[in-house]
Design a protein around this nucleic acid. Sequence first.
RNA 1: UGGGGAGUCGCCAAGUGGUAAGGCAUCGGAUUUUGAUUCCGACAUUCGCAGGUUCGAUCCCUGCCUCCCCAGCCA
Length: 447
Amino acid sequence: MLAAAAAPTRTIAAPVSCRSAGRREDGGGSATARMPRAILDLFRKMRAGEFPDGAHVLRAKIDMASPNINLRDPAIYRIKHATHHNTGDKWCIYPMYTYAHPIEDAIEHITHSICTLEFEDQRPFYDWLLDKLADGGFFTRPLPQQIEFARLNLTYVVLSKRKLIQLVDEKHVAGWDDPRMPTLVGARRRGYTPEGFRRFTDQIGVSKSDGWIDYSVFEACQRDVLNDTAPRRIAVLDPVKLIIDNYPEGQSEDCFAPNHPQQPELGKRVIPFSRELWIEREDFTETPPKGYFRLFPGNAVRLRYGYVVQCTGCDRDAAGRITAVHCEYLPDTKSGTPGADSVKVKGNIHWVSAAHAHEAGVRLYDRLFRTAQPGQESGNFLDDLNAESVKVIRAQLEPALKDAAPEASFQFERHGYFVADHVDTKPGAPVFNRTVTLKDSWVKTEK
RNA sequence: UGGGGAGUCGCCAAGUGGUAAGGCAUCGGAUUUUGAUUCCGACAUUCGCAGGUUCGAUCCCUGCCUCCCCAGCCA
């Protein structure tokens, strides 16, 4: 790139160099008096490393009276005694990005060079440079065109490289592939799908007004895709025992659950049922709030894909914590049998047979930041880190989940979408990452 | 201050002279063995503000207001 860029400088109307002390406002005048040959000679000495950093700079002569400062004889090469990965220490000048960029675009036959809004007032220089180089025969028209659009700002997310590096370096996250990171490797471990990203980009559009896309738009896109593609499975994330007192000890039977309620062609899987099950702690309460239709003493619910049970009470330990919930099942109500609908219930909770469950690690991820625009208030985005952006738990899974393949996504019914982590999952010992929760209108009515 | 941009529903975003698409969110209601999904319905007499042109303006003109970016030998 350096070599390619060096040649064209000779064609610029009158490239000039000036003393390091001179800024744009006062540096142009003396240089116009210099002869091109003298300037070329000086430039070669700059390149050869005969001057210290900052001693000279090569500037393009354009228009010192321009209201656009980028046209006031901008610097295009400066001296830097840096070791280059290709040229080593032989070449001591480096082009400015604003100078190199249009040339690179032209060399690569770029037609539309898309960039962000902050480069808008750089465009006149971009056009000026390529126009000069085309006049000099280095490039043919039509020339590349720089077109600016707003960058993507996503609420609750930081995307700047500087900030991402800081998150990793200062170990606020586990690494570049931490599932909370908005990186390709992070998104992949999180279980976000490529199709979900495509849907997202289709929906947010492209414009020149800089705004903030709400993270819920992104989540909705991921849910859309996962809802169609992810097989359903049962996982109890916060287990408490449910004991069916009138079900024989030691007995078990098979229940059948569809892999996808909207796609029966995907078949069913077997889920073992027995006397002692794991259910979610939050699916039972002794003091039900208004509208609560899960387990509470006297109430009946369906054990999804199994029987209807009636709650009889619970056990507590010395500290008052519930250790087990008790119920009795209605033998004729098994899902899939003629009597299944003989008893109507509103509630429907999931469960896993304690004797058949597979315990596994699950990471519940949430937004990395707790404010929509991290750092907006305090000026330091780290102040807005969400302390609860990850919760590592042990969950009780249905047997079919034991052999989940790395990167396989599932919907854990009533919870959300989860993916088998491709780094930590071992054969027969999956570890799951929560991609995104299901929508939950109950948490809203609760408040 | 000078220069460069942007202002259409809570958040994005079409429309650019003929009387305001769509998505997310929200709120109703139906279906549902996921308080999910799906489905139906509601959701800007109004397009930053004020004038003007026009039969008619979000769109054209004038003025104003607000917000963002630049003023590195950074990218």
